[in-house]
Design a binder for these strands. Sequence first.
DNA 1: TTGAAAGCGCTAACAG
DNA 2: CTGTTAGCGCTTTCAA
Lengths: 339, 339
Amino acid sequence: MAGVNIKMLASKLNISIATVSKALHDSHEISLATKQRVLALAKELNYVANPYASSLKGKSSKTIAVVIPEVADSFFALSINGIESIAQKNGYHVLIYLTHESFSNEQAILKVIQNGRVDGVIMSVSSETTHTDHIQELQQKGIPVVFFDRVCEGIDTVKITTNDFQSGFEATQHLIECGCKNISFFTISDKLAISQHRLEGHRQALKDHQMEFNEKDIVFCNNDEAFNYEAIKNLMKQKKHPDGVIASVEKLATTFYVVCKEFKISIPDKVKVIGFSNLAAAAILNPSLTTVTQPAFDMGNAAASGLFRILGEKVFNYQEESMVMPSALVVRDSTSSGK
Amino acid sequence: MAGVNIKMLASKLNISIATVSKALHDSHEISLATKQRVLALAKELNYVANPYASSLKGKSSKTIAVVIPEVADSFFALSINGIESIAQKNGYHVLIYLTHESFSNEQAILKVIQNGRVDGVIMSVSSETTHTDHIQELQQKGIPVVFFDRVCEGIDTVKITTNDFQSGFEATQHLIECGCKNISFFTISDKLAISQHRLEGHRQALKDHQMEFNEKDIVFCNNDEAFNYEAIKNLMKQKKHPDGVIASVEKLATTFYVVCKEFKISIPDKVKVIGFSNLAAAAILNPSLTTVTQPAFDMGNAAASGLFRILGEKVFNYQEESMVMPSALVVRDSTSSGK
DNA sequence: TTGAAAGCGCTAACAG
DNA sequence: CTGTTAGCGCTTTCAA
């Protein structure tokens, strides 16, 4: 039932297992006749090599790990598509691990993939991640780690990012040009480089337009839907609520819409909003949502390509592979001025 | 650098590798003192067992495969969350494979996970899957396969489904009650059991209301966005376009909205629409989308639970685990009558 | 309570 | 061209 192996092929053909192994790998030192006999039987018996036995010897698991905060998020889902397409092309298998934005989960995951389970790791860190010993430990064990989107700047490796500062800048500038005087910035972390950069872009735009930045205009959200809902509700129930909002994380835009709907606050009349989002449905929201859209698929693709290039080298060379892929501001009705 | 192993621990402690192995597994036949010494050194050196070596001996890979058509779809993304939470709880690792709705991809994937790579498989078949030899082959090799959502009815195993017939029925009935006379049904397959059941429910509802069913009212879509867009466009550009639409697949509702927006066909005035969807954004679409919402997370959870129960048995017993989890019709503005 | 040794399935060096 | 053999890291009898 389970397990037709090399030994079985060998005994059925009355040849040695070494010959079978070589035949299966199309070695030059095996006669054509033997190869054909082996291949024929292998096909007949539906032989598939036990990957873990090969891995034990060969040192390559043909497996990578993708460690991300969440999969029910269109950015990460699309990234996975990008990663998978490259992995597939290279004959690699993809293990998925979700941190759910928890640092201790992230630590536990990296720990458990340390010894041989994977050849490399592609990750986007959790919003709680501030120190990086767990990541460096992995690197020290010879397992390359590549970052995409949420990178750790202090770590020397390939980093695929998008132009977060610029995106935050443009989003804010766009709102200002639409007449917003009082802009709120929704974020999930003050630790994440990506969040910081978006916020810095935001502040720079304010500054360039001689507008004041106030710490109170930052709304910190987290992984708890109910908490976020309350926070946004508290913000919007004020008489003098903001007239512009930047949701620097996809799901926060959705929550914001829900709150506005509930309070009957009209978008874009009373408040304009821009979401950082890859939602296909952004265009058909009520009203359609102006977005900063990241090249999610391409970023996943680039991260995987970077990883495989590293895996192909004897000595890892990280520097050159890093890249910044531009996001696009797509203007829709949620920031339209007229009406 | 790479690879602190049992041998290393043993030599540093001047004991045998057998003792180390037993100590690490907290065997009763090892003294407390020795256990502590081993554990201490293991922790110090950050020892993690090579999973593939264990797997080679033990026969368990502690890994399952999830084989699905697509990940950038909120139903599947949420299902993965449900699967992952159970896998995590059982100390299992999750390999993700995407078929992209292609049968040959599906075959190739099942082939490559045949020999020891995984202990079990959770899958939702591609829209092209009509015969099932590849799946049965896996079962014959002793690898249990559990289905969720898109099941193969002919195969004896655990199947987690939702009440597709009922959902199709209720969706149609709701449209009829809203006054629709001419209802179009969007699907991606006439082979998939799930699609058939939804369609059968649709037909039954029509029949119950003495309405005629016409083959022309079925719109076949596929995995090609552009194709679907054209098909829906052709449908809606007719003078006498349908006044009701059931999108039996999530993404088709989005496409439908786009087409209506382009043609300035008002929803729900000129046409009402129901989507089979788990999109969080359904409530804030323009107009908000009436949906049939599946219990995606719970279905993934149930499928994984079923698989682990099977893995815990000596002799597999499929029958009892199958279950049908109800979907919910959530009425929103896209089918509102008044206005 | 500890250790020696066989072996999981495969690969690769070396011999024939 | 084919076969013998050692060994990857681990678990598990069986002996000591």
